[in-house]
Design a protein around this nucleic acid. Sequence first.
DNA 1: CATGAATGAGGATTCATTCAT
DNA 2: GATGAATGAATCCTCATTCAT
Lengths: 207, 207, 207, 207
Amino acid sequence: MKADPLDGCATVSKAEMRKQSQRDRILAAAMRCFIKSGFHCANMAAIAEAANMSPGLIYRYFENKNAIILAIIRSQLMASQCRIREMRNTDELSENITAYFEAREDEQADSMSVPLFFEMSAEATRDPDVAKAISEADSAVRRELAEWFRRSPDEGGLGFAPDEARERCLALILLVDGVKTRKLREPKLDRACLKKAVDRIVAVVTG
Amino acid sequence: MKADPLDGCATVSKAEMRKQSQRDRILAAAMRCFIKSGFHCANMAAIAEAANMSPGLIYRYFENKNAIILAIIRSQLMASQCRIREMRNTDELSENITAYFEAREDEQADSMSVPLFFEMSAEATRDPDVAKAISEADSAVRRELAEWFRRSPDEGGLGFAPDEARERCLALILLVDGVKTRKLREPKLDRACLKKAVDRIVAVVTG
Amino acid sequence: MKADPLDGCATVSKAEMRKQSQRDRILAAAMRCFIKSGFHCANMAAIAEAANMSPGLIYRYFENKNAIILAIIRSQLMASQCRIREMRNTDELSENITAYFEAREDEQADSMSVPLFFEMSAEATRDPDVAKAISEADSAVRRELAEWFRRSPDEGGLGFAPDEARERCLALILLVDGVKTRKLREPKLDRACLKKAVDRIVAVVTG
Amino acid sequence: MKADPLDGCATVSKAEMRKQSQRDRILAAAMRCFIKSGFHCANMAAIAEAANMSPGLIYRYFENKNAIILAIIRSQLMASQCRIREMRNTDELSENITAYFEAREDEQADSMSVPLFFEMSAEATRDPDVAKAISEADSAVRRELAEWFRRSPDEGGLGFAPDEARERCLALILLVDGVKTRKLREPKLDRACLKKAVDRIVAVVTG
DNA sequence: CATGAATGAGGATTCATTCAT
DNA sequence: GATGAATGAATCCTCATTCAT
């Protein structure tokens, strides 16, 4: 009944926060389902159940299933970028790369998942929008990484010439992709052997 | 009623050949559909149309859709093995690996396809049988490759110690996986840059 | 959010009631379809239409078509038991048995239907579960009937020795089965003749 | 080349015989399949395999599946009539009726089968032609049986008045139907008990 | 906001029937 | 005559999406 000047504002803000938290809940649930069943075999009922809400409610937050897939893909791309960014320390580079092999599948929608990495990549073959988003995200990651390779050691970089920086960081990315692939295809692979192989390439790539 | 000693034999043989050619036709069609739509979105009607036959006829040659998926996976694993085997020549190694990036998607069911490589890998997350088949095929490939790294140069090998042979060939596989991944995720990637990156790693890995 | 102690309870109860009424609607529709077309020629689309709902909705209430068949069989067995139980009055016994010949095919899933009696019996030849359910239900009916034959007249029974009670009530069941069969196979059979035949056997069996 | 006046005739005759034997082979196979799977779940491929011939060939001898069903029904009706006819001996009447309970399912298309008795009866609900055929066959059987009840003992009959003969033989038929039904629904029924029940009714009906 | 019942189009699979060989 | 490959309509069932409550 009273006119609280903050009331409307606070309500909107609270509503927005609620909305975001609901979206997050859905995305976390969807991620679990997608990891388990793939984008196309996971069904909305399962996602709803995993999110502890009714199927109908999901449609208040996402236009349709594809919008959820796209949101997951986008969050995966960001999670990948974050993870690559964290790598920038030559000493730990090899450990960080090897760590992809051990990555456990997290429930959080914003953590990187190797199965989803493959799911997304496969999806890119079919959906041009997905292909574009992935391609752009990966290019950005490589540019960023190349910039680090290029910067002088004084600035915390590796001090390579621009072209060579690009080439060496591509080599590094190939290595990361390779480790992810092995995780999925040969999960029982000998860790020590992998470590040595990664070390060898990291050594030559970082100079 | 007539006693033609070759008759029965020839008949059986012709029927068997027909059967095999029909299976091949279905597999080639399925491959195209799977590349285009993925294992689960490709539908039997589309495969039938691509194979130029009625949906019902497919079931005379494959028990169900899953049997087709498994047959495609098996043939892809074999095609991959063949392709890796052809690599054994240090001079052309780098070219052969870079070639993965250019691979066109062939209609033949027994040619290797990068999109299917991802589709299969994603499937392995869900289906233990697929996971096992892939894991075993990849292990076999690595063992074979390692044997080449180990053999003395006189025998056409690279002459590394067993452990080191294993480690170096794993590094090579990581590289191949990496190139495949880039093909899918950054198809516009600069070939020259890729070539240099691959060359650099191949050089250090082979010796 | 509100604390209405009856709210949850009432909601659950209403939902349960709805669920039951939907199941009943489906069973009544299925019964009509099964009588008309038999278990295997009746199709889900027809049942859905008869139940005035979409085909998909049926699967919210029954796992599959077979579950509907089994539910119908179970309800038919119970309806048969009820009907046999109502017979226990020597004066009306003959009328009650003859009545099987006049039975109209009701829409209600829980009323006994002669065509379904045959459909079920035929099904029992193929499905061991059905065979077991029928056999047990029929045995139970006979046991119950035999108990009535055995009880002393003071207790409203017929006062036969246990073995004879069993034998006489089996004779009665043979008679009931016979009337049902004639209804299906010779629906134009002369009622008066049937009545006399039934009377004659009932007389000797009960007395 | 020679004009043998009997040749054409013999050829036709041989062809006719062949045709009949083929039809019989199909009917025997169909009977086995129908007993095992029912009219509607038995499929042409199974019948063809059971008859040791190709599916296509069946259509040279029967217009379609329904024609086979009708032929089986017709042969079953005839087999039933034969069996009832063989009953005419008061001494063995009870044994003959009880024998229905022991009837094994024969491979021959012209032997009576209890499961098919039910399958046919169920079918009669749906197909008016089947209903008519069954009704007429059963009426004929009853008429024939009644005639025996009516004939004087000198003529090997039982010497009842026409109306009573009809009524008593209907009672007998009810009994036969009842025994068949129990065979299907309670195959573990105590034989001794059944025998006594049948004896009791046969005694009163024939006496 | 939230629910979950309801829809109906779409997908895998089966099978009676035909027909080229 | 005989085969069995081929057809395609029909069937069961699933699931993304909607909407009354």
